[in-house]
Amino acid sequence: MQYLRIARRKAWRIGLLVALAALVAPSAFALSADEIIERMEDNQTHPTSYIEGEMVITDRFGDRVSTFFAHTEGDDRFLVEFTSRDEEGQRVLRRNDDLYLYYPDARETIRLTGSALRDSLLGSDISYEDMTGGRGLAEDYKFELLGEETVDDRRCYKIELTARGTNVAYPKQIYWVDSEDFVLRKSEQYARAGRKLKVTEVLETMEQDGYIFPARIRITDQTRRSSGTEMILHQVDIGVDLPRGVFSLEQLTW
């Protein structure tokens, strides 16, 4: 999932940045929006990972928890399997820009196309469409540095992303990227008419295997009377050997 891979960074780079902060500060401020996004995307990209976590959907009747585990590779391949009772065995496979769902009872595979991509993932604030994209933002968006703002006591670059075409989920986005470790701290997604659709906030980060990445994220769909969906990662193993053919229909339906 895109948000699972947001803002990862090798620790030595952060250490280097911290050590040289005073010296490099003037040049850092001179970074362009494209360079900041590129650094952020560098953090997001790693070869492989195995993740276990849960998704907590909150409404007035309480919390609903969906647990899952996932294998990921790069920016555009993942296989998620839900393990909670209601969704037991349901899987989502992403291959490039294609999404496939598997329902174990029906032994049925569905390739999501068209408006079905806008359906909510298990009633959460996350749409299937949110699970696509994430590859090479520069291909789909133009960037403009709007300035710097503080998010949760972290100094961040505020960058506006404007879609180059219509084949993206959000015509406009605003990112707040940490000016020290280039981790995405917050983002907002907008409709073409300017209406705010979603807000993603990074509540906690985790450092492991030389990477820093969000460990607890809250996604709030602004079009719903929503208390938000929290994505919490309990275990992340980076650079793992993936099972052979894990991103295939055979594995999806196993």
Partner: peptide, 11 residues
């Protein structure tokens, strides 16, 4: 099959 939002929190 087609789905769309018809208002806040309504599909």
């Amino acid at each position: 099959y087609y789905g769309f939002n018809v208002g806040p929190d309504r599909t």
